[in-house]
Design a binder for these strands. Structure first.
Lengths: 291, 291
DNA sequence: ACATTTATCTGACTTAGGTCAGGTAAATGA
DNA sequence: TCATTTACCTGACCTAAGTCAGATAAATGT
């Protein structure tokens, strides 16, 4: 017996619509109408092109224009014509605008902190919130190339190692494994891809090349909160496309049979099991795919 | 290494504010302004007293009055003076109003269903949504007395039995345990309390009396989605209050040491371990509390 | 060179939502 | 009984948000 899924979804909707306004009221906390606050915050987050902001916030061009004027009158922003195209305008925060934006950020952070402190064990709640956020925003996941030493990449890798340590019977120690040199996962030899959702890294994959026409897939990882969304498949497909761009002809990878879901993914994507091709202590299964 | 909790909360807020409008647009789907739709739905859900609706939706009395007039003009509701107090008014759906309300319900159900069907394995997502909803609405949890044969009570009991079956090494079979007769958990002998959150049962406890001044606490259960909110403690406190009302002087309970968190709860609430007082095969630890 | 397209702005207008100061009629308390 | 309180209604007014039809000026295609 289980409670009706539709009721559960609707209950979530009710809870969220009833409470989320209270959860983050930072946009209303500084005596400015919501519209103006949203524009100010979009600019503060780095959006500069007026058309881009309008598009992002879904505003009519007339309304947008008026909101920009009101922020200008407050002395919070300045707009200048785009040097490449004088019809377009670029909006930037002034000094006062920047400190006003930071006040909004501080408000929002404080509210998030207060929310967390109302919960005695926030870790499980946070995990649940991650799952919901990933699922709701699944269509906004973007894959980006990153240097493997970039903080986003390093976050993914450390989570990946931690997971291997949990799942392998004998644990996992990076230093025992052939950790690919960062150089070999940067163009022109290879690439390192990170899946980003709302500025948070939630998955990665590395293509490790040696300059020849054979390359290896390494470090495929998807955050627990984002599993079941087909992200691993998407990362693998993107890595394959990158491999073709780099004129790779043969892809290889090694894996461990403890990672059952991975093996299934490879087989379905047309990978074929081959003999061991390295003496790394952790993998016990080896695959190849000709492009 | 773990991602900053504040960023995670803010990411959830962004995801939810961006998507939840799209998640349930049923209130906007029938060409009526949001305010009127909300009032119609409040009445459809059984709210009748005008003041109660106004309070529930947080509306100004002038606005409320106008919304009621517009719904009346549409022929969806009828208002009559309260027979006990002719100043107050009672709002009820007309025939057309009822079918309009049901159209909203159908829309909302269809959207929830569509949302579920977009997810390949919705069970984990639903679990996460339950956790978030329970936590956000924790202050709205109410404890209500229910007949143990009421569907809400039976839902809780079947979940409780299923959990015992999972957690006990040898499983759990209700028929082997001394299942208290429903009569003994109804006043004046005892009570059965269910914790309700937004119409969904999320916990229960039974007070089983025999007519004398000794009674037993049975069937204490909290839904996994609602743990960590202090609900078990609250249920126990409510059961104690009910026991005092029924002139019970000694409370007893049995538990199994596999349920570690329960034992701690009892000790902290002033219960004292005593000798075995029944020959039920499942419990191995026994407690008593004098009121 | 010139018609067309594009990005933004301006003015006129609409709707939803909400506030506030009375007004009416019923209920209540001294 | 009668002043006071209470529940709801009405009219006047306000703001935020959004729509729409041009206007303006820069860029673009032929």
């Amino acid at each position: 017996m289980s409670y009706d899924p539709i009721s559960r979804v609707r209950r979530f909707n009710r809870a969220v619509t009833a409470e989320v306004g209270a959860l983050d009221t930072s946009f209303l906390g500084r005596g400015r109408p919501l519209g103006a606050a949203r524009v100010l915050n979009a600019i503060g987050q780095g959006q500069a092109d007026v058309a881009a902001i309008r598009d992002y916030l879904g505003l009519d061009s007339g309304l947008m224009s008026r909101l920009l004027r009101s922020l200008e009158e407050e002395g919070l922003i300045a707009t200048i014509p785009n040097p490449q195209d004088a019809r377009r305008r670029i909006a930037k925060l002034t000094e006062t605008g920047r400190s006003e934006f930071e006040a909004y950020e501080a408000l929002s952070n404080a509210q998030a902190k207060a929310f967390l402190s109302r919960n005695s064990q926030p870790e499980e709640l946070l995990r649940a919130m991650d799952i919901v956020a990933s699922s709701l925003r699944r269509d906004h996941i973007v894959l980006e190339e990153r240097d493997p030493r970039h903080p986003d990449a390093r976050y993914c890798l450390s989570e990946y190692y931690a997971e291997l340590a949990r799942r392998f019977e004998k644990g996992f120690d990076v230093s025992l494994s052939r950790d690919p040199d960062a150089r070999e996962m940067i163009r022109p030899r290879g690439v390192f891809l990170v899946a980003i959702l709302d500025a948070m890294p939630i998955g990665c994959v590395g293509l490790k090349g040696s300059g020849g026409d054979v390359a290896e897939i390494k470090r495929l990882w998807v955050a627990p909160s984002s599993r079941g969304l087909g992200l691993a498949k998407r990362l693998m497909a993107a890595a394959e496309i990158a491999a073709r761009e780099l004129s790779i002809e043969v892809l290889r990878l090694d894996t461990n049979s403890a990672l059952t879901e991975a093996e299934q993914l490879y087989r379905r994507a047309g990978w074929i099991e081959i003999d061991r091709f390295n003496d790394d202590p952790y993998p016990d299964t080896f695959f190849e795919k000709r492009l």
